[in-house]
Design a protein around this nucleic acid. Structure first.
Lengths: 191, 191
DNA sequence: CATTTTGTGTGATTTAAATCACACAAACAA
DNA sequence: TTGTTTGTGTGATTTAAATCACACAAAATG
């Protein structure tokens, strides 16, 4: 296994919980690496949600399709982000979402069982996951605020502020699917 | 301090992490009780967000006011729920939200410092908070899905399914503010 | 008790955004 | 390189929901 991949994970964890060499040797055995090509699906509706993914590189979208075949993007993910169909992953139900690769890269895969084992074995890892969840929870609440009371304009500006690099790398159409606004309305905002 | 209040907290924690008498004796010292009257504010915009609250009884709304003086409800809370202005609580910034009591009751108050101390001292408490955050994260993602792609009708039905008791206890106007739908539109849904 | 405040239904009107329908450009594939 | 798919702008039209404007009922208040 390429050591470089694991060093990236280690650095990421260290930002929250300091771990020593011995601990990391044990921790890293819980992950597997996967190379992903553009257009490839890491998850499709109906699949068993085996993993949560830690993004080493590339760009991905987590989305679902409603009754009228319309797509809605729940999450983008890029370097050092975590992604999965979380409602299904945590409750171990079949996927209701898709994960598609937009820009090729690599991810680390973690099963729920290994996640729980890491949390139970290492207080530090339980701490790490709690802090990540805390940040995630706050981010989702801010997104809900924007969906409840933000105009398309405000949503777009906030997106541009939070993810300036995604703005340049992904089609506007997908940003519209993330913001809950039609492609056309979004296009008319920045004239 | 009334023991009954603390037993309620203990039962709540036990559902996730088994703790013994000795541990709980230590844990409970981190909380304080507060009685809250109808109409009373536990938090107002601009306040320092000193606490997260564990609801022993009563009903509360967590809301904010946008530029046009319109109210939006981010969260309702009742028995055994936790509530705060989380973005501000976790980042220790001034409140952007209000918490108002709709039905009088009691809450337990926990400071961020005590929350972190509990998590650091007891692996079990760190586990407890992680599990609570996991559930909260999933709930918020499902709400985002509903805001992105749900019609007012679907949002209302989902609310009724999730919180049948709140349906009866709080005015429809407030449910509308939670769902991001006007009072009038909501009223026309269930004819 | 009377009276103010708060909640709720319902019609009429307005409005923002979705949808439909193009044209054209850029990226990708054969 | 040529055709095909994918992305993007922009006008015209439709539509769902917000807003405005009431009436009346229920609850809280003095």
């Amino acid at each position: 296994m390429n050591l470089y991949y694991m060093e990236k994970l280690r650095t990421h964890i260290q930002h929250i919980a300091p771990i020593n060499d011995e601990e990391f040797e044990e921790i890293k055995t819980h992950f597997t690496v996967k190379r992903v090509r553009k257009g490839q699906y890491l998850l499709s509706e109906g699949d068993e949600v085996k993993h949560e993914f830690f993004v080493l590189s590339g760009i991905y979208k987590v989305f679902y399709i409603d009754g009228q075949e319309k797509e809605y993007i729940l999450q983008f993910a890029q370097e050092n982000w975590w992604m999965s169909d979380y409602p299904s992953f945590f409750k171990q139900k079949d996927a209701t979402m898709y994960i598609e690769c937009l820009v090729e890269g690599e991810v680390l895969c973690l099963t729920l069982q290994n996640r729980e084992k890491l949390s139970a074995t290492f207080h530090k890892m339980e701490h790490f996951f709690r802090v990540k969840l805390t940040n995630g929870y706050v981010a989702l609440q801010l997104r809900i605020k924007l969906l409840l009371s933000g105009t398309p304009q405000q949503r777009y500006e906030e997106f541009a502020r939070l993810y300036p690099n995604l703005m340049q790398q992904i089609p506007k159409k997908l940003i519209a699917e993330f913001l809950g606004v039609s492609r056309e309305t979004l296009s008319r905002l920045y004239q």
